Simulated scan of single mutants.
Amino acid sequence: MTWALVASAPSMSCTSAATEVSSAPVNCICQVAPAAGFHQVAGAVAAAGTVEITTATSAARATNTVREVCRMPRHRPAVDWPDLTVRRNAPPGRGTDAAVAWSVCVRDAGGEVVYAHRPELVLSTASVGKLLLLLEVARSLPLDLPADRRDVAPVADSGLWRFLGTDVLPVGDLAVLVASVSDNLATNVLLHRVGLDRVAALAASLGLTATALHDIVRDVRTADHAPRLSSGTAAELSLLLHRLPSIEGGPRVLDWMRTSADLSMVASAFDLDPLSHNGVTLRNKTGTDDGVRADVGVVTGPSTTVSYAVLANWPPESATVGEVLATMRALGDAIRVTVGK
């Protein structure tokens, strides 16, 4: 069914319409009060087709008109997608979130978009760009090839290899370290093997125009370096995750991603043990930096499979990590309902 929404308000979203009615097609125009929800409107509609809903606050407050079309396939479960213009856990008087930039895209098992918020917005994605490296490694390097960490400069932050006693590990083990704990040293050693140019060529061959891994991981990033490790859009990343099973090397990357231990963002809603994922089948990769949180993945539940990308950037002084994570979990809750968990 298609809903054509006409809203007289500065900001409206029709992506959370949760009720579907079905019968012979009919057109109707419904005037609803600002507090009325889609459930009240749908309950008054006796047949489906194109429903035009005009929502007015008042003549004094109505400042513009937004027209949007949302497709609601039959039998899709009712899902309460969060309003990304409202801050969760915000201090009193700071309930509107204009500081956090979100790019979100969720796709069903067929690749169709079921929810999106500014999906084409290019944002910093921190370690999410390592997925492109893993895909190139899966396609081009022997997994038993020895790799030596002494070939690159030491690097701190995320990872386990720098705490281990061995200097040499096979490429396949390094890929697992990158997928599971976003190991920075393993990342740089793999990049030393394949090169950024090959990763960029792979991205271009996949039709990615805004999603890229720009640099190695660095403890200090200066004006002489790329300004960020990676960037991307939710639209491209969710589509890449959806396509991975059919891309050369993609199934192996998905196997590596099943070891991810970071369930702090969208995946927190699935209530999985981060060291033993018993429940829904989850393959995800996260990215973390100052003012950056990103979580992309594929999750399979009893009902269906969903691929998702949720990206958030914000000036660190304008919002807290807790607020952003609360919203990411709310998006995860909606995904959990979608997959039937």
Rank of each mutant, 00 (worst) to 15 (best):
F163P: 00
F163Y: 14
F163N: 07
L164C: 11
L164N: 01
L164T: 11
L164M: 14
G165C: 01
G165Q: 09
T166P: 00
T166K: 05
T166Y: 01
V168C: 11
V168A: 08
V168G: 03
L169Q: 13
P170C: 10
V171E: 01
G172M: 11
D173V: 15
D173W: 09
L174H: 06
L174W: 07
L174V: 08
A175W: 06
V176Y: 06
V176C: 02
V176G: 08
L177I: 06
A179S: 12
A179K: 03
A179Q: 03
S180C: 12
S180E: 15
V181I: 14
D183Q: 04
D183F: 09
N184M: 07
N184Y: 09
L185Q: 15
A186C: 07
A186N: 04
A186I: 05
A186G: 01
A186R: 05
T187R: 03
T187A: 10
T187W: 04
N188C: 09
V189S: 06
V189Y: 11
V189F: 13
V189D: 10
L190S: 01
L190C: 03
L190W: 05
L191V: 12
L191N: 02
L191H: 04
H192K: 14
R193F: 02
V194M: 06
V194C: 09
G195Q: 04
G195Y: 08
G195M: 08
G195K: 01
L196M: 04
D197E: 15
R198M: 03
V199T: 03
V199F: 08
A200K: 03
A200E: 15
A200T: 15
A200F: 00
A200I: 08
A201F: 00
A201G: 10
L202Y: 09
L202I: 12
A203D: 02
A203H: 02
A203Y: 04
A203C: 08
A203E: 02
A204W: 01
S205Q: 06
S205T: 15
L206W: 10
L206G: 01
L206D: 00
G207V: 13
L208S: 09
L208I: 07
T209Y: 00
T209C: 07
T209G: 08
T209W: 00
T209I: 04
A210G: 03
A210H: 14
A210W: 01
T211G: 01
T211S: 08
A212V: 14
A212P: 00
L213Y: 08
L213D: 02
L213M: 10
L213W: 07
H214T: 00
H214N: 12
H214F: 11
I216N: 08
I216M: 06
I216Y: 06
V217Q: 03
V217L: 09
V217K: 01
R218H: 14
R218L: 15
R218I: 12
D219W: 02
D219C: 08
D219A: 09
D219M: 06
T222P: 13
T222R: 14
T222I: 02
T222M: 04
A223R: 14
A223L: 13
D224C: 05
D224V: 07
A226G: 12
A226S: 15
A226Y: 05
P227W: 05
R228W: 12
R228T: 12
S230N: 08
S230E: 04
S231V: 06
S231H: 12
S231T: 13
G232C: 11
G232K: 10
T233Y: 06
A234M: 07
A234C: 03
A235S: 13
E236H: 06
E236L: 13
L237A: 05
L237I: 13
L237N: 12
L237D: 04
S238V: 00
L239G: 00
